[in-house]
Amino acid sequence: MQVNDNKEFQPLIVAFCCNWCSYAGADLSGTNRLNYPTNVKIIRVPCSCRVNPMFILRAFQKGADGVILCGCHPGDCHYTSGNYFTRRRMTLLFSMLDFLGIERDRTRVEWVSAAEGAKFAATMNEFTEAVKKLGPNRRLEDLRCRKQ
């Protein structure tokens, strides 16, 4: 694990990982002693399509600076087609968040299989770097609640 340098901005990254591929991929990167940043908080879901758009918004609301969703490669979903639905939903949702002014580099979908420990680590490193460059997320705040 990397030791965080306190002076530098450290983004909070939430990674939703499906149980059957990506979570196992994360495990593998651990057993292979590959490094990925401690900024990444993994939430395990049964299938990538379990992720309701509300989960993503909640993650941002609770302070995430970036949200990434990982699932089995298209065609390999444990439940046959879950990730195909995920793909459409997240494409539209991320496009909407972009439309509302959340920078598009704060959201991502990545397909990571159980054998791709190295890809998992590389993806997380790269994503964390990208979010770090953007700085803290601007909240979808209500102007009436803004502290003067």
Partner: peptide, 14 residues
């Protein structure tokens, strides 16, 4: 949203 095809674009299109 209740449909899909195997060659839909990836979310990265955004």
């Amino acid at each position: 949203l209740t449909d899909y095809t195997a060659d839909d674009c990836e979310a990265s299109i955004v």
